[in-house]
């Protein structure tokens, strides 16, 4: 329970929250309401006039096979990114947790990727897997596999998943490590005395005890994959080939700014907004309550 603080004057508390409110209004409430309004309009091809059409944009969206396909693709993409980055981060954290010498250096190195901007991370992977000059393409070629994500949709998807997951590993690692280190040492020792080997201790003690963190990261990673991977996709595939890597956020951009269907694009962003809101609700509802110790 938070302590209540009483202010003497009546304007001070308002003044203190004003900057936050202002930022929220300017950067969230206003654009969001614009998007909401826009989603109910249809513009003509030249952007000279618009017509109020109620929910026609939404009705059209849900009848659109491409849109539903993008939805499925996004879900596949998000869960792959979340799973891959979390599994990798968990492995690294489990190992880092046991390191004693040079632990800080080791940890610092593992945190670096988080400081890399999504676009830059995308650019890195583009270079490594470039069909003509990428080092990995070359290596795969030597092993007898011809890599070309510019033609092969599956490979393109794989590449954006790996690039996005790589970026997220550092973040997940930090949280997993913090969670593992908050488990009292004596619990692990008690399990060791009880006869559990390292693997058994990990699966029967550590994993259940960090489950609140796992759930939290699950939500955060899905949100990341849903919304913040735009930069990576834009740098790596531009949603191609043949829309094979076009996820929801990328479609909003593509339809709105390339295809100039502002109303339809706004409607898509409203749907995305609803998804974020529900994920946040899940986050607050369950994660904050389900802490074991």
């Amino acid at each position: 329970m938070l302590k209540r603080v009483h202010f003497g004057s009546s304007w001070l508390p308002f003044a203190l929250v004003a900057p936050q409110i202002l930022i929220t209004v300017v950067f969230f409430i206003w654009p969001a309401s614009q998007a909401l309004y826009q989603s109910l309009l249809v513009e003509d091809a030249f952007g000279l006039s618009s017509e109020f059409v109620w929910f026609d944009n939404f009705i059209e969206l849900f009848g659109d096979e491409h849109y539903l396909g993008t939805f499925q693709r996004t879900i596949f993409f998000s869960f792959s990114v979340a799973f891959l980055s979390m599994a990798f981060a968990l492995t690294l954290a489990a190992m880092a947790d046991r390191v004693i010498k040079g632990a800080t250096t080791y940890r610092t190195f593992l945190i670096w990727p988080y400081a890399v901007a999504p676009v830059v991370s995308g650019a890195l992977w583009v270079f490594m897997f470039d069909p003509t000059l990428g080092i990995f393409t070359y290596t795969l070629g030597a092993l007898g596999y011809e890599w070309n994500h510019k033609l092969n949709g599956g490979e393109a998807m794989f590449l954006v998943i790996v690039a996005s997951a790589w970026k997220q590993v550092a973040y997940n690692f930090l949280f997993f490590l913090a969670a593992m280190q908050s488990i009292p040492k004596s619990l692990i020792e008690a399990a060791a005395i009880d006869g559990a080997g390292p693997t058994r201790r990990f699966t029967s003690i550590i994993l259940p005890l960090i489950s609140p963190t796992t759930f939290f990261l699950m939500v955060i990673n899905v949100v990341f994959a849903f919304f913040e991977t735009f930069g990576i996709i834009h740098a790596v595939t531009q949603g191609g080939p043949a829309k094979a890597t076009e996820i929801l956020v990328y479609k909003v951009f593509n339809d709105g700014f390339i295809g100039l269907d502002l109303g339809g694009s706004a409607a898509q962003s409203v749907i995305l907004m609803l998804i974020v809101i529900s994920l946040t609700v899940i986050q607050f509802r369950y994660v904050e309550k389900k802490v074991e110790y």
């Binding site: 009292p184 004596s186 619990l187 020792e189 008690a190 399990a191 003690i205 005890l209 074991e292 110790y293």
Partner: peptide, 8 residues
């Protein structure tokens, strides 16, 4: 153990 170290 001092803090009992029960598996929570």
């Amino acid at each position: 153990f001092q803090n009992y170290a029960l598996y929570p």
